[in-house]
Simulated scan of single mutants.
Amino acid sequence: MNYSYPMDSGWSTEEIIDVIKFFEFVEKAYEGKVQKEQFMGSYRRFKQIVPGKADEKRITDEFQENSGYSAYLVIKKAKEMTTDGYISIKV
């Protein structure tokens, strides 16, 4: 990993850690697999920190620009799954 995570100066240390965990789950979905339940829990926490759609898009787009990994695709795949299981994005 040779990129940085998007941050907001208004976030607390705990919020920064939780946002980084969310992006780490996105990375795991691309680099292997991640359990849907864990990912969605992390995404729900991310949405508590970044509740606005515009801010979510800005932050996830910045992450994708830096990493090449689309949080949107992982979220979409997780929401489309009808059962618990593992999320894996194959490129």
Rank of each mutant, 00 (worst) to 15 (best):
G32K: 10
E24T: 09
E65Q: 07
I59L: 15
R58V: 04
N66K: 05
E62K: 13
E37Y: 13
F25S: 13
D84C: 12
D61L: 09
V19P: 09
K28V: 03
R45Y: 05
Y69L: 02
Q35F: 13
Y43F: 11
K79G: 05
S9E: 13
Y30R: 00
T83E: 15
G41L: 12
V26T: 01
I75E: 03
Y72E: 14
E15Y: 06
K36N: 06
L73I: 15
E65M: 07
Q35L: 12
P6Q: 10
K57P: 06
F46E: 02
S4Y: 09
S12P: 06
K77M: 00
I49N: 00
E14Q: 13
E37F: 12
Q38D: 13
M7E: 15
M1R: 14
Q64R: 10
Q48P: 03
G10P: 04
S42T: 09
Y5C: 01
D84K: 15
V19W: 04
I16H: 08
F25R: 10
A54L: 14
Y86L: 09
R44D: 13
A71S: 12
E31M: 11
I16M: 11
K33E: 13
V26K: 00
A78G: 02
K76W: 04
E31F: 08
E31G: 07
N2C: 01
D61K: 09
I49T: 00
G10H: 11
K90F: 11
N2I: 04
S88I: 05
I59Y: 10
F46L: 02
D84E: 15
R45E: 09
W11S: 05
K53G: 10
